[in-house]
Design a protein around this nucleic acid. Sequence first.
DNA 1: CATGAATGAGAATTCATTCAT
DNA 2: CATGAATGAATTCTCATTCAT
Lengths: 190, 190, 190, 190
Amino acid sequence: MTEEALDKKAAALQAALELIAEQGFHGAPMSRIAERAGIGVGTIYRYFASKDDLINALYIEIKSRLTRSILKGYSEQLPVREGFQHLLDALVRYCVAHPAELAFAEQYENSPLITAVTRAELLRLFQPIQDLFRRALAEQLLKELPFEMIGALVYSSVTALAKLQLSGAMQLGDPRYETGLAAIWDMIKR
Amino acid sequence: MTEEALDKKAAALQAALELIAEQGFHGAPMSRIAERAGIGVGTIYRYFASKDDLINALYIEIKSRLTRSILKGYSEQLPVREGFQHLLDALVRYCVAHPAELAFAEQYENSPLITAVTRAELLRLFQPIQDLFRRALAEQLLKELPFEMIGALVYSSVTALAKLQLSGAMQLGDPRYETGLAAIWDMIKR
Amino acid sequence: MTEEALDKKAAALQAALELIAEQGFHGAPMSRIAERAGIGVGTIYRYFASKDDLINALYIEIKSRLTRSILKGYSEQLPVREGFQHLLDALVRYCVAHPAELAFAEQYENSPLITAVTRAELLRLFQPIQDLFRRALAEQLLKELPFEMIGALVYSSVTALAKLQLSGAMQLGDPRYETGLAAIWDMIKR
Amino acid sequence: MTEEALDKKAAALQAALELIAEQGFHGAPMSRIAERAGIGVGTIYRYFASKDDLINALYIEIKSRLTRSILKGYSEQLPVREGFQHLLDALVRYCVAHPAELAFAEQYENSPLITAVTRAELLRLFQPIQDLFRRALAEQLLKELPFEMIGALVYSSVTALAKLQLSGAMQLGDPRYETGLAAIWDMIKR
DNA sequence: CATGAATGAGAATTCATTCAT
DNA sequence: CATGAATGAATTCTCATTCAT
């Protein structure tokens, strides 16, 4: 793909992200996505087979950016406890810094748009994080709970924290924010 | 309203619930809701001013049933710790027993459909639960966190547990289920 | 028909008249007509076979009241010129005094609702006025024009005058009103 | 707009004109308008924001064609009397030659669809004709009546004449047609 | 390649009419 | 008789997708 083509594809994804985050799926017809992206409607169909395809690609992209960002500065060499601390913190920070992505993801995950392909792709992305969990379980730092359960509890809690911050109820520097993060750790630690 | 009228109104709500839970908002046009409810499309409009109105009414109804159900057997006389235990347990049980309601609520809460009226109504419904939190905070059983934060952490975690059970990963009797509930308590207890 | 039945029938006609005059045909669904008439929707169908039937009956009723009113005080004994004067004047006065009827009639006459039966009924109502025209033509007071043409010219002009008054541009006592009436006579007099 | 686009827009207007003239507003749903225009329903909405918008645009277009047509051959140099003669004659001829436009205009003007914008646009179109009236009033050729009154009387009378011709009661060459036109002049001349 | 006009299936909503009470 | 709840055909309008330019 040429650089220009990449630009247009990215513009379409970004426009869809913003519109869906701001107005929900109903407020994001293809025509408006194209308009905000500054490209033609037809052009979108050169890069995505359908609207569903666009949205699934957007989700993968979002999750990919998220994992890339929170894994930055993380190393498998880090002690498990510190690794967790890093990831939790990075996760909340990322969500707060990218509210549109959070809003989009929440809507998407609760809609029946998700495909099997998307689910598989997600697992791949989360591999390093799974590894951390496995290490933690092996070191008996965590409660004896299945991996998916810990993941679900942590993810939903962090997301809840991020939403609170976005609603304006709390600032990042707020000491209660630290307490909140600690609470999440309390939940899963043995 | 006559009994038959109440039946039709309830049938419309139930049909909408099922369809939205199963297929999302896009899979629930008024025509299909009417069809599944076994009534005419026009009839729905005798009871709800618009589709938005129907959906908001449904959400209130769902939350109302939920609170009524989990408050059954709960008493303000109960010690705080037991009160929590009861509510958490009842909440997961209710969500697992009413998967369509959970699926609908998750979709609705992440959509831009909520109105101010609905939000106000919700607060009213949750009053008794708020009181429990206040008691717990007063007795210094909980971490020093704002009420909304504790509520959000608990609700999102319980929901996450319920979804896990629904996905088939776990049964109600599973010992890990008890551990999961305990983990949620660990998160918020001082 | 009992007296009460006549009341309901009249109430339906009156409600339809007002609604159509105020908001046009689109603003006058049967449900609203019934509501304003203070009766049930079904009741209207006891007196009128359909909405079209109701509207046609209303038109006949309107025209009947109009002719009855303007013929009051008119006598075949009157000299033709004075007879005309009387009728023209009475016609404008009636229209101005009954703006809803004028508004309704204008809308009705330009719609394709009118039936052959209604047309025939109209002719019957206008008989005495036709006679006046015939007398005038016989006395060679009028231009040699076909009866329908004079009638159409006069009716449209009087209606135009009445609309002007209703629009607030002119008062009944205004001297230009007299001049206007005289102008209409100038149009048809030989 | 490309030529083809203009074609479609014009086709929609023409189809709406014919259907409303023939069957009234009730006989002209968007689907039928599109069908007769030989275009898709959605296409109409590319050119008109709503059905109301389409109808108002049609009215402006009709009146614009009408004024353009009757002003052809008219010159401000013409003596007032001849100017009137020309306009009256051209007006009847136009109405008779374009019965659908007459029928549509009559229905529209008596409906509550007119917007303020449309009214303003009309005034602009009728400027040259207003000028003629002003000249005539200045030369004391007309009765001392307000401009609007003369305009209303003349327009309604001419329209009445045109409708008569359309009903088949009279032909254009008919001497009584000339007498009719003369009668209208008699009405307003001093 | 990019575009956006054109399309028509499908969505929400209205309303004349019926009929059980 | 009177009522008005119930109905579904019909209406307006939207939007994902196509395809000629």
